[in-house]
Simulated assay, not measured.
Amino acid sequence: MILPFCVYVLQSEKDLLLYHGFTTNLQERLKNHNKGRTPSTSGRIPLRLIFCEFYLLKSDALRREKYFKTTQGKRMLKTMLRNTLEYVEYPNK
């Protein structure tokens, strides 16, 4: 079974800030982000994918994306991705 709805987290290689989004075509969405076609991230390219989750239902994916944008969701993501975020910031550590 293919899970069509994706919630993803990108990190700017420029300033290391995170961006949360939703899509049904992750590869195309990443291309658009990195070509500067998304206003909210165009000044922060290049961006790298650091996390994604797939869902069967659009409503579940949108709820998860909304949660990631809350203070509690951001805190949880930083806890979940602690090692990834440290590695990206200090790759030789």
Rank of each mutant, 00 (worst) to 15 (best):
N25M: 02
L77F: 13
Q11N: 05
L49Y: 01
K66E: 14
N34S: 06
Y55T: 03
T23K: 04
S40Q: 13
S59V: 12
S59A: 12
K74D: 15
G73A: 07
P4T: 09
Y87N: 12
L3C: 11
R48C: 08
R75E: 13
L56T: 14
T38W: 02
L81E: 12
G43F: 06
R75G: 01
N83I: 05
R63W: 00
G43Y: 02
L18Q: 05
L47G: 02
I50G: 02
V9S: 01
Y90G: 08
E53D: 13
L81M: 14
R29M: 01
K74C: 04
N83S: 12
L18H: 06
E13L: 15
E28A: 14
G43I: 03
P91W: 09
R64Y: 15
L16P: 07
T24P: 06
T79Q: 15
L62N: 03
Y67Q: 11
L16H: 12
I2H: 14
T84E: 11
N83L: 14
P4D: 04
N92F: 15
F5M: 06
E65C: 09
Q11H: 05
P91E: 06
I45F: 08
M80D: 12
N34M: 09
E28T: 12
Y90H: 15
N34I: 02
F22R: 06
E28M: 11
R82M: 06
E89T: 13
K58N: 10
M76W: 01
Y19H: 14
L17F: 01
R82Q: 09
L26E: 01
L30E: 00
Y19T: 03
V7A: 10
Y8K: 01
R64M: 14
L81H: 01
K69Y: 02
L81F: 06
V9P: 05
F68N: 14
Y8R: 01
E86Y: 08
S12N: 03
V9R: 00
T23M: 02
T79R: 13
D15F: 09
T23E: 08
V7M: 00
S59F: 05
I2E: 14
K31P: 02
E28Y: 01
G73E: 08
C52W: 11
S59N: 11
N34V: 02
F51R: 11
